[in-house]
């Protein structure tokens, strides 16, 4: 019950923030001079990319805790975060692609950040794959935790190696003069709103999985 209370408050706050963020993205913030209207995707794409990384950080921490303490709650949290992480990584790739088309005239470019996000996406897939291919559930959880740890360590190295070897750095070119104050404000509100939504979804997923487990115990269904 206490959990529900927390969730409702976070839900209300993030709903209000989302409405505000939508207002700011579409009406409040001025249109960027060189890229035009399409640049507004940025206020959605960046928060999604942030959530993809946040989810992976949660996986990393909980994977270590799971391997150390062997308590199911850590695995449950890591798994829930991974599900959300996969969704947000996919959305980042889609919005990034939509942005790339009018700005660089291609749907896809092997630019460092896009490449890193794509590899991150594949690592998320591998994370779920080892889990489903494992013979027993607790083994799958252990394997997934190992993939979560190794994958998380790998992401910065991928970013580093792709940016060293493949120049082309759009971020720097795009906002040479830095972001104007209204843009920063819009970005911050959007980031908060998305993080709020993420938290609600995470709480909801964990609660759902807990209920599933409780039901499983009640029914005494072996795996």
């Amino acid at each position: 019950m206490k959990n529900n209370h927390v969730r409702n408050i976070v839900l209300a706050v993030s709903l209000a923030l989302t409405v505000l963020a939508m207002y700011m993205v579409f009406i409040f913030v001025p249109t960027e001079r060189t890229m035009g209207i399409v640049q507004r995707i940025f206020y959605l794409m960046l928060p999604m990319g942030w959530l993809a990384m946040l989810a992976f950080t949660i996986i990393f921490i909980n994977s270590i805790l799971y391997l150390k303490k062997r308590e199911d709650k850590y695995d449950l949290l890591a798994r829930s975060a991974a599900e959300l992480g996969l969704v947000f990584t996919t959305l980042t790739l889609i919005t990034g692609s939509l942005w790339a088309r009018p700005v660089w005239h291609v749907w896809w470019t092997w630019e460092p950040r896009l490449t890193t996000t794509l590899v991150l996406w594949v690592i998320y897939i591998a994370y779920f794959m080892v889990r489903s291919f494992a013979s027993e559930e607790h083994r799958g959880a252990t394997f997934a935790a190992v993939v979560g740890i190794i994958g998380f360590i790998d992401v910065p190295i991928i970013g580093m190696s792709t940016s060293i070897w493949r120049g082309l750095h759009p971020g720097a070119i795009m906002f040479q003069g830095g972001l104007a104050p209204p843009m920063v404000q819009t970005l911050v509100v959007s980031l908060l709103a998305f993080t709020g939504i993420f938290s609600v979804l995470l709480i909801q997923l964990v609660a759902l999985k807990n209920d599933e487990n409780a039901l499983m115990v009640l029914k005494k269904i072996p795996d």
């Binding site: 590899v119 991928i158 070897w165």
Partner: peptide, 29 residues
């Protein structure tokens, strides 16, 4: 890890290839 899963030799490339991306890029260049 992959030898302990059901799909065995299928799992290794799926895990291995994305993780070694930095080595492959650096080695090629």
């Amino acid at each position: 890890l992959s030898v302990n899963t059901r799909a065995r030799e299928m799992v290794l490339p799926i895990l291995f290839l994305p993780i070694v991306v930095p080595v492959v890029i650096s080695a090629v260049k």
